[in-house]
Amino acid sequence: MAATNALRYDVLRVYKELLYLGREYPLGFENYFRPRLHKAFSAKSGLQDQAEIKKGIEQAEYVKKEIEALYYLKRYRALKQRYDKPS
């Protein structure tokens, strides 16, 4: 049980980081991102196996990177449209 508790903080950390990232999500935070994030985490709340929990955390880290990339691209495209000379 003690080892599961150690992972508990990792899960909470990545959940909080995702919540923070989601505040700027283009489709909305309150009505889109947060419920979905919550659902994704609660769907796996029953996991007991260490390895599987670690896998879940890895997946969350991957999603984090994807969202960061999405934000970057969105901004890059908006700026390119506004500031680049048409070629």
């Binding site: 923070y20 990232l21 890059y76």
Partner: peptide, 13 residues
């Protein structure tokens, strides 16, 4: 200019 680099995201931690 826009294409100099790809700025990183200022993460919560």
């Amino acid at each position: 200019d826009l294409r100099l680099n790809e700025p990183r995201y200022a993460s919560l931690p």
